[in-house]
Amino acid sequence: MFLLVFIGIVFGLNHYQTNIKSFFYSASNFPQKILWAVGKNTSVFTSSIFSSGKLKKEKEALSCDNQELLAKIASLEALKKENDELRNAIGAGLEKEFNLLLAEVTGKDISQDFITLNKGSLDGISRNMPVVTGHKVLVGRISEVFKNYSKVMLLSNKKSSFDATIREKEISGVVKGLGNFKILFDLLPQDKEILKDDVVISSSFGGIFPANFLVGKVTSVKKNDIDSFQQAEISPSFDINVTEDVFIITNYNI
């Protein structure tokens, strides 16, 4: 008898889970916001203490990178000017292309690659809307919507899969989440040469995400003569520990 009542309660909870979760997220919004901010600041402080040895090496590497980037900026300035002129000519600014809604990150799933945002169905959010950062970095897409909150399935979630490309080399493939903030670039042609630090950007081919958003950089390539395709591991460009605000693209939906 007791077991039947218990099973009934579990099924009941499951049936009303959207309302229950929505209630708990609403009630916990304020303390979660504070804990998130405190946790972020504390982790930055403690990590800086523990990694002081690494900082020197990183500084040297960064100063080298800085020199390289300054050279690139100089060449990009000229391209930007040309691009701006063309953009003005055709009237196709990015802000005109997408409707963006700013949202705050309020929590992260303990075991899976999900984050919680403080915008929900009342703000016009619906499932599958892409989530990006202000620097044109792809974060994920809305997987669950509550009244005032929504869950974002990160690119690194095991269920995430979408088309992407390495623009400079015209190589297309499929980006798959491996879980625990790891991403794999799969189904890459064997005849193409992929190198470390190649930049992977999203492609609108599958219709899941808009094109030209930064996904990450190639960290290692797995090439085998027996396999039909090669694979590459990507280090995602988004860092959820640093990211506080994200943008939801509200006019791009599957």
């Binding site: 916990s28 946790g39 799933d109 303990i110």
Partner: peptide, 14 residues
Amino acid sequence: LLQSSFLIHFGFLK
């Protein structure tokens, strides 16, 4: 609340 918003920022504590 601690698990979902605070400990998540720390290496092994999460």
